[in-house]
Design a protein around this nucleic acid. Structure first.
Ligand SMILES: [Mn+2]
Ligand SMILES: [Mn+2]
Ligand SMILES: [Zn+2]
Ligand SMILES: [Zn+2]
Lengths: 144, 144
DNA sequence: TTAGCTTCTGAATGTCATTTTCAATATCCT
DNA sequence: AGGATATTGAAAATGACATTCAGAAGCTAA
């Protein structure tokens, strides 16, 4: 089931309503680069829909996370970012501390080792964050 | 060199001053549980030193991080936590989303795999975060 | 030891992302 | 369509953290 259907079903199940704003925000959110902060997405939407409110954008992003079609990311720069989630396509991140570049990686061996650690400590893992911070190759060249 | 010496040397080198507050905060910080938020440590210190200021506690924790005897942690609950760092004793965390329990783990195989990933993408890693969120065994029993 | 310069402290205030409030508006169900 | 209920957007509130500033304390050199 695609993310739009997941969202629509969540809205129906919870007795929420389908609004123009929500559809527009969802399409824009799914339709381009990931890792949006509320501010980023609000600015982008404003160009085409100048009447849209910041609070609506933010509430809607939280709603996406709540219904499972997005995840919240926090790279420690004081802004929460949201990224569309494709079911069963987990990945982690490399973050350039100089230019902000975000690169995604997956490594099943790490995922497996995590599970071993969790069972060692009798933890029941719900989610995890694994982020590598440093300089991307461009910034490293510029010794930035 | 122990953490108190590292701090004292840093203070000297930077032309900062040695104050009672800083010593008291350092001793308390090193002397009990880890993973203090500013608020946590402020509340603890207040009992014995009621005149100490919140801003001083916070500035001093930042100073500890700056001089390398502490690291800042962020478990996504909106509060930065500080933990005394023992040189070359890196670890990552399991965090119980129900009771807040924090368990530490190290896994050299993961650390190595990280390095491989970084070099694959030509990243020069400065630091990383790896946190596993879920239910500790107690909370899992209480299905909580 | 003390003068004099610099840093520190603590209370208050500022900042900034995020959240909440609320009155007007839109949606949904019958 | 009518009416209950959710949503919206502007504004205000919140909360963690950072900054300001005047008085206090630490440091250094004579
Ligand atoms: Mn991503
Ligand atoms: Mn720890
Ligand atoms: Zn870069
Ligand atoms: Zn627990």
């Amino acid at each position: 089931m695609d993310r739009i259907s997941v969202f629509n079903e969540y809205v129906r199940r919870k007795g929420l309503k389908n609004t123009n704003q929500r559809m527009v925000i969802l399409e824009t959110f799914l339709g381009s680069k990931s890792h949006y902060s509320t501010e980023d997405l609000y600015m982008k939407l404003r160009k085409e829909y100048p009447k849209i409110g910041y609070a609506t954008v933010h509430r809607t992003l939280k709603l996406f996370a709540e219904c499972g079609i997005a995840i919240e990311l926090n790279f420690g720069d004081g802004q929460t970012r949201f990224e569309p989630l494709i079911a069963d396509q987990h990945h982690d991140h490399l973050v350039c501390t100089s230019c902000g570049l975000i690169v995604e990686f997956t490594e099943t061996r790490i995922e497996r080792l995590q599970e071993q650690i969790a069972s060692q400590y009798n933890f029941k893992i719900e989610r995890h964050r694994h982020e590598l911070y440093g300089l991307c190759s461009d910034c490293a060249k510029k010794q930035g």
